[in-house]
Amino acid sequence: MDDEFNVEGDAHAVSAQILTSLAQAKLHTSRTEAGIQARAGSDFLFRLLGTPLGSSHLPVGVDVRLISARDYTRVSATAYDRLGWFFNKKLVWGEHVMDRKLTDLLNAVRAAANKSPLPERKATFSP
Rank of each mutant, 00 (worst) to 15 (best):
Ser76Val: 12
Leu105Phe: 10
Tyr80Asn: 09
Asp63Cys: 06
His57Ala: 14
Thr73Arg: 10
Gly94Trp: 01
Ala112Ser: 13
Val60Ala: 12
Ala69Gln: 14
Lys89Thr: 07
Ile67Cys: 01
Val92Ile: 09
Ser76Asn: 05
Val62Lys: 10
Ser68Trp: 00
Val92Leu: 13
Asp99Cys: 06
Lys89Arg: 15
Val92Pro: 12
Gly61Pro: 01
Tyr80Pro: 02
Ala69Leu: 13
Ser55Val: 15
Asp104Ile: 00
Ala108His: 05
Arg110Pro: 06
Trp85Arg: 14
Ile67Ser: 12
Ala113Cys: 10
Arg100Phe: 02
Leu105Asn: 06
Tyr80Glu: 11
Asp81Val: 08
Ser55Lys: 13
Arg82Trp: 00
Val62Gln: 09
Ala77Ile: 07
Asp81Ala: 15
Arg65His: 06
Asp63Pro: 05
Gly94Phe: 02
Ala113Val: 04
Lys90Thr: 13
Asp104Ala: 14
Arg100Ala: 13
Asn88Trp: 05
Ile67Gln: 10
Lys90Ile: 08
Ala112Asn: 04
Thr73Ser: 13
Thr103His: 08
Ser56Gly: 12
Asp104Lys: 10
Ile67Met: 09
Ala69Thr: 07
Ser76Arg: 15
Asp99Phe: 05
Val62Met: 08
Gly84Ser: 11
Glu95Cys: 03
Val60Pro: 09
Val60Leu: 11
Ala111Ser: 14
Ala111Ile: 01
Asn114Ser: 11
His57Trp: 11
Lys89His: 15
Asp99Glu: 01
Ala111Lys: 14
Gly94Tyr: 01
Ser68His: 09
Trp93Gly: 01
Leu91Asp: 11
Asp99Trp: 02
Val109Phe: 03
Lys90Ser: 10
Tyr72Cys: 11
Asn114Thr: 01
Ala79Gln: 04
Val60Ser: 07
Phe87Lys: 15
Arg82Ser: 02
Asn88Glu: 08
Asn107Glu: 05
Ser56Trp: 01
Leu58Phe: 14
Phe87Thr: 09
Ser56Val: 10
Ser56His: 12
Leu102Glu: 02
Arg70Leu: 12
Gly61Asp: 03
Val109Asn: 08
Val92Lys: 12
Lys89Gln: 15
Asn88Thr: 06
Phe86Val: 09
Ser76Gly: 04
Asn88Val: 08
Leu83Lys: 03
Pro59Ser: 10
Leu66Tyr: 03
Thr103Arg: 12
Met98Lys: 04
Val75His: 02
Ser55Thr: 13
Phe86Arg: 14
Leu53Val: 08
Ser76Gln: 15
Val97Pro: 02
Thr73Cys: 12
Ser55Arg: 11
Val97Ile: 15
Leu58Asn: 05
Pro59Ala: 12
Thr78Trp: 00
Asp63Phe: 04
Thr103Gly: 07
